[in-house]
């Protein structure tokens, strides 16, 4: 029993992080209508700013704050590109833009962070929170999952209950119409990108120590993130939350298997495949008329 439970719980913190990234991906899609391939890379940028600062002797707390702000800034910069040149573009074009930007960001990030050179990632939270059925549950996993749940609830409430949320929904559906009724489209869109950047940066800081911590590996966490978002059909935050956590747990269990260690990276792909095959049974057409 424990032989499966331990790795499952070990996958929890990664799962929480995937859930956060997945919720952020849906948030970006629902509010600014972009399937964002750079999401994790934005977070990675913030994380590495934090690491660079701590390596130069800055205390952890201000370094984390500055790192989060840096994530927000990178987010706003990418958002600036998207809103300036691609606000009227099709969803496919926008996705292509972020995919292309991902290459550039990764290349730039690898250059600035010295490629595969190992960095010292401080544990933001460490140690065991409690034991559950003989298995250690770490503060890290507790924090990511809590954060993911909080973010999910907050996103749901924000979109459903607030005036800004309503405006943002209008913005993503018909940017031009939203602009014409006096919504400050650009400012709102940039705010979304900034917030997403900040949140992902923080999530990445928590899980970075658990990963092979180079810029590229962190940026490519966008794969499980998008898998989680797909489980939520790019609509439901709650489904994405569950999906993200589930992917983390399955990954943890697979890597504990003797033959499975090398196939951990395959899990998100299989999830994507299954979800898409399931969700697309009915015929759908592109935009009418």
């Amino acid at each position: 029993m424990n032989s499966l439970l331990t790795p499952a719980v070990a996958g929890l913190s990664a799962g929480g992080a995937y859930a956060i990234l997945g919720v952020c991906a849906i948030f970006t899609y629902r509010l600014v209508a972009v399937v964002n391939f750079t999401g994790a890379a934005i977070g990675a940028a913030g994380t590495f700013v934090m690491v660079a600062l701590t390596e130069h002797g800055m205390p952890l707390f201000p370094a984390v704050i500055i790192g989060i702000l840096a994530g927000a800034l990178v987010g706003v910069m990418i958002g600036g590109v998207m809103t300036k040149w691609f606000s009227g573009a099709s969803a496919t074009t926008k996705a292509a833009v972020t995919a292309a930007l991902l290459v550039g960001i990764i290349a730039l990030g690898l250059r600035l962070t010295g490629g595969q050179r190992p960095h010292l990632f401080p544990d933001l939270v460490s140690g065991s929170a409690f034991r559950f059925a003989g298995v250690e549950v770490t503060w890290g996993s507790l924090l990511t999952v809590t954060l993911a749940v909080g973010l999910t609830i907050a996103s749901d409430l924000f979109l459903a209950r607030t005036r800004t949320g309503l405006q943002m929904r209008a913005l993503s559906e018909r940017p031009m119409a939203a602009e014409l009724i006096g919504i400050r489209v650009r400012v709102l869109a940039l705010a979304v990108w900034g917030i997403m950047g900040a949140v992902t940066a923080f999530a990445m800081m928590i899980i970075a120590p658990l990963r092979s911590p180079d810029f590229m590996s962190l940026s490519l966490l966008v794969v499980p993130a998008l898998a989680a978002a797909l489980i939520g059909a790019f609509r439901s935050f709650r489904a994405a939350l569950l999906g993200g956590v589930l992917i983390g747990i399955v990954e943890g269990m697979v890597s504990a298997l003797e033959f499975g260690a090398r196939f951990r990276g395959v899990v998100p792909f299989l999830v994507i495949l299954i979800v898409l095959l399931w969700s697309q049974r009915g015929a759908r057409w592109d935009a009418a008329r």
């Binding site: 399937v35 391939f37 969803a91 496919t92 996705a95 292509a96 995919a99 966008v222 794969v223 998008l226 898998a227 797909l230 998100p268 792909f269 994507i272 495949l273 898409l276 095959l277 697309q280 009915g282 015929a283 759908r284 592109d286």
Partner: peptide, 16 residues
């Protein structure tokens, strides 16, 4: 899996 929806899904599948 990407047959029924347009380009974006295929992008996600292929990246995965």
């Amino acid at each position: 899996p990407a047959l029924r929806l347009r380009g974006i899904n295929l992008a996600i599948v292929t990246l995965g």
